[in-house]
Simulated assay, not measured.
Amino acid sequence: MNSSDVKTPEPRARGLAARTRSVAPHPGGYRLAIEPVSFVVRPRMLVVALVSAALAVVLFLTGVGVSDFPLTPIDVARILLGGGTRIENVVVFDVALPRALVGLLVGIGLGFSGSITQLISQNPLATPDILGITAGASAAAVAAIAFSTTSWGSWFGDLGVPASAMIGALLTAALMYVLAWPGRKANSGINPFRLVLIGVGMTWMLQALTNFLLTRADIRDVGRAQVWLVGSVANVGWSNVWPVVGGVVFGIVVIVVFSRQIGMLSLGPDLARGLGVRTGAVSATLLLTAVLVSALCVSAAGPIAFVALLAPQIALRLARTAVPTPLLSGLVGASLVLGGDLLCRTVLPGGLPVGIVTAAIGGPFLIYLMIAMSRKATV
């Protein structure tokens, strides 16, 4: 056999194989390239994400097992995998599972919605509940709950709470965006300070509207609406689960599709435009996504306070990133809601809604955040 008969890999083939998968150092971690895509793996963020996901799973299984028929997390996992008895299946699938799923999904949705609004505005205070988005959803949802039998409120009642909350949130976000838009100075982008001020003003106006509606509603409807306004995952069923599932899945798809643009927006609007990002269109798409997801979360569990503020800032500090990461913020938000609901059902007096726990934690954290921002501005 001649040496010419032995076929060696062509240089082009060897180059293609080398480009198929490569790992290279990166300032933020390691750059992993799998043609035609590449991404950066940050070890600390990966570890924090895995721990947050594991904590959320444990809290979810524990929450499902807390009932009149107590079960351990291992028993719950066994039942969910199809190994339960008839009584266990009824307790888990018909009673406990919807509540735990709503808590999990609402936490994820509020967490990454808050991360998106903070990223767009470059302001840690710009969250759906402070910008008035959840207040708009709450006003429309209260109209659907308390005035479904009246002539003007029957329209909201026919739409249902999820659709009414979505319409209220969309109208509020559109009005807020118009008022905060700089007009012909659009190249400078929306002023974050102006956006927050307009959002706070709209929040108070919409809360006044909600209180006015409550004073005109039937006392029995007021009781239901008041519990809902505090934020609670109790007394939910499978009908409350599916709208939130659709919203969270849609939000995750948008985040994955726009992951590259989100990374560039974190560098600032001017630099992002220099890198070829259509900041106006991308910001509007992400803001619309945050509005839709937060509205569906509010429609299922009410405006659970401070989750959209707490989760991104906790995720930012745990992962030590410059800006909150949406998916990691969602995992932290899930742990906050599930942990708060578990605390209400095991330690605190029975019947307390989870919104009380998150408000008790979020209030002091907001004060700390304001002080930190003030000190940073004076440096």
Rank of each mutant, 00 (worst) to 15 (best):
G183V: 01
F212Q: 11
G276K: 00
D75Q: 12
I252L: 14
S164L: 05
V48M: 06
T210E: 12
P303A: 11
S113A: 09
A311G: 12
L288I: 11
A334M: 02
L331Q: 04
G114S: 10
A126Q: 04
L159Q: 08
L16C: 03
A225C: 06
D94F: 13
I219N: 11
A225I: 07
I79F: 01
L352G: 05
F306W: 12
L16S: 07
A308E: 13
L348A: 08
A300D: 06
L369T: 06
G189T: 08
G339R: 08
L206I: 00
G15Y: 09
N235F: 09
I314M: 07
R216M: 10
A169E: 06
G362L: 04
A169R: 05
T279Q: 03
V337L: 04
S374F: 09
V178N: 02
M45T: 15
R317T: 06
P98E: 04
P353Y: 12
N240G: 10
A143V: 12
Q122K: 13
W228L: 10
R220W: 15
W152F: 05
L80R: 00
S151L: 15
T127D: 12
S3M: 12
G136Q: 02
V337F: 02
A311M: 10
F250H: 12
V249G: 01
A272H: 10
F69A: 14
V95L: 13
G333T: 04
P182R: 02
I145L: 01
A217L: 00
V95I: 14
L265G: 05
V196S: 13
V200A: 14
K376M: 14
M264C: 08
H26Y: 04
G333M: 02
S335Y: 09
V248T: 10
A217M: 00
S374C: 04
V95P: 00
S4C: 04
A174C: 05
L265A: 01
A24H: 13
S38N: 11
V282F: 01
M166T: 15
R224D: 02
L331E: 07
P353E: 11
D221F: 00
V241G: 02
I79S: 02
R320L: 15
A305E: 10
A360R: 06
A372S: 12
S239V: 15
L81W: 05
Q313A: 09
K185N: 15
G302L: 05
S4A: 13
L342W: 08
G351K: 03
R375L: 15
T325I: 09
R21T: 14
L338D: 03
L80P: 00
Y30A: 15
G276Q: 00
A165V: 08
A180T: 11
V227H: 12
D75M: 05
T358S: 07
G83E: 11
T127K: 06
L328F: 01
A186C: 09
G157H: 07
R42G: 11
G263W: 11
R216C: 10
S113R: 07
W242K: 08
S299K: 01
D218V: 09
A334F: 01
L195G: 02
P11M: 07
R278I: 07
Q122S: 10
G136S: 00
G302K: 09
L229K: 04
L214G: 00
R260A: 03
G63E: 02
G15S: 13
E88N: 10
